[in-house]
Design a protein around this nucleic acid. Structure first.
Lengths: 347, 347
DNA sequence: GTTAGCACTCTTCTTGTTTGAGTGCTAATC
DNA sequence: GATTAGCACTCAAACAAGAAGAGTGCTAAC
């Protein structure tokens, strides 16, 4: 089912025009702007392309619109990587190469600049921390009845919980507890720590044991889970208002409601493949995404922490440009993280 | 300019009907549903009310719509506090009385339940930390060239930054630095700490001094600022799609764009009065808010930490109900915070 | 002071018409 | 045999005219 040279060119022209204008593309337009033959010839070719499933017809007397199959062909075989413009690179640099307190902060900025450049809705997932190891555990007295439980992992992720006690704890007890917890958990990965039988280790100290069991342990688990949580950042939600696809208030509404189910989105993102992945229209399974395309890529930090970022938009999108930007961004996140930290020295 | 009893009743009826239906209210409707006289009488009264500025006329042959002045009168003099329904109380309880790691978490939930109950866009501002005192300062070695700077305030707020060093630091140096910082800053409020001349204190230790000046100090300031930041939580953004006021895509767009300028919103909220504050339409100053009403209230935690929460919606809103809910919520946040923490013991 | 009646206004809905972009097909042309 | 000109046909979108309906303001009667 190989397409002739001309058919490919016409298909590409239709895609290019439609992506730009969002209007069905007629034979006249193609004939005028690309020298591929007369309108009649183009029409014949288009009819063939339609029969092959690459183009569709909103109604008898309108121009052609690329099908998902056409976009897929374009993405797989036709499109070429684009070099980013200097402005785009600058925008990314000035957004990423700032001082950040936390890696999450950087990820958030990445989503921001991504949405600005692509004019689409962007999102980024903070790195999964499964492989993080506990590095520091402390119990800090706040007042008589409350203690701050603090955990730090070796990637610098900090999580903490205020624990309420039924009875005041002596500083000594807290010190022992913290020391004991450090001894038992430090160096373990977060997921390992969650699995250990945490009570076992305090058999020989009744007071510590009781406090640990009743108050600390549940908070400890909760804090570990909190550290494991990945965060989803989104930006550019209002960009869709500029798209004719979402001129219909109902469409806009469904989009926002879909994008608001953060847990779903997170899940969907996590389960996507590594590297750049493009899913078009109904390839996305989800009915709410059946008219959208999603482009994601995986970034690495330290060669160990791994997260995802990408955009979501109508199937009519600049696949070449967006793919290039997403790829460029993921390549630069790790670098940016190292550098921005280094910057502190120069302040 | 005192209104007669009947005029007041008619005005109230118009408001009630318009709030419910979003359609201009005609004299027939009022006459039918409230026994206040014949349509003709009502019409005469309405004409008077219009002259007095309480009602307006979209066009000659349509019913009346309450003006901002009418809503203001209603809010000030006519409306009565409503007792929350049991379901509403339950919804709030089940949302607030959960385990939370941080106060911010609770605030976020408050915004969530507020938007669910009112069907409007809700927001909540985490407490200002100006009065928080530094309780704990530590420097934790991560690897040879990076150190985790960690600050804890007495309200349990934790903030941290990974600091990159140019030269490796001995544990001893870090210990001394941390001790020194603790000595100098512990017990100071965050704002005080920001103002102190932080270099002065290390005159007598060249190595510590140099490291502090070059690497730690800037991060220290940044971390303090980070702790002082208030967070803005929003929920129920998509609720506006259900409102006829936002059937127009342009209106929806402006709303979202306005709500997306988080810094502006935060600023605007902070500058609002204490207690319950209601601003109607153009009372909000901001042009983007000229067709909205905003209801906010202040909550307290520990009698010291203070934040705000509220809703934003069209001027046509259930002022009585929303006010009651907002008030009820702020009253319960402090209680909930204490209780949820106590719950840990029972786990 | 209140109300019935009626002419009038203005929006909204429906229906019909026009316009224009674009197709498919046939026949002529290269 | 592929390409192109020509033409009839289709359909959406834009526009206009008319009908329906809700509601008003005013006058005159109660």
């Amino acid at each position: 089912m190989d397409l002739t040279e001309r058919k490919l060119k016409i298909l590409q022209a239709v895609i290019a025009d439609f992506v730009r204008t969002a209007e069905p593309v007629g034979s006249r337009t193609i004939s005028k702007n690309y020298s591929l033959g007369s309108p009649a010839t183009i029409r014949n070719e288009m009819a063939d392309l339609e029969e092959l499933g690459y183009l569709t017809h909103p109604h008898t007397s309108s121009g052609r619109v690329p099908s998902e199959k056409a976009y897929r062909l374009y993405v797989n075989d036709l499109m070429q990587k684009r070099e980013l413009s200097q402005e785009q690179k600058d925008a990314i640099a000035s957004e990423l190469y700032q001082n950040v307190n936390e890696l999450d902060n950087l990820i958030e900025r990445a989503a921001h600049v991504l949405s600005e450049i692509t004019n689409l809705t962007a999102f980024a997932l903070s790195p999964g921390k499964e492989q993080d190891k506990l590095r520091y555990i402390n119990l800090l007295p706040m007042d008589d009845y409350s203690v701050l439980l603090m955990l730090v992992s070796d990637s610098g992720k900090v999580s903490n919980t205020v624990v309420r006690l039924k009875a005041p704890a002596s500083e000594e007890t807290l010190r022992i507890l913290a020391k004991n917890m450090t001894y038992n958990y430090s160096g373990k990965t977060l997921s390992e720590a969650l699995k250990l039988d945490i009570i076992e280790n305090f058999r020989n100290d009744a007071e510590a044991m009781s406090m640990f069991e009743n108050a600390i342990a549940p908070s400890f688990i909760r804090t570990l889970e909190d550290m494991l949580n990945v965060n989803l950042y989104m930006d550019g939600l209002t960009n869709i208002f500029a798209l004719p696809e979402y001129n219909d208030i109902e469409k806009a509404r469904t989009f926002f409601e879909m994008i608001n189910r953060k847990a779903d989105i997170t899940q969907k993102l996590i389960s996507r493949g590594d590297g750049v992945e493009i899913t078009i229209g109904r390839e996305n399974q989800d009915a709410d995404l059946s008219e959208c395309s999603v482009i994601t890529a995986t970034y690495h930090v330290d060669g160990r922490l791994v997260g995802k970022l990408g955009v979501i938009g109508p199937t009519r999108m600049k696949y070449d440009e967006v793919t290039s930007v997403v790829e460029y961004l993921t390549d630069n996140i790790s670098k940016a993280f190292m550098l921005t930290e280094g910057d502190d020295d120069d302040r």
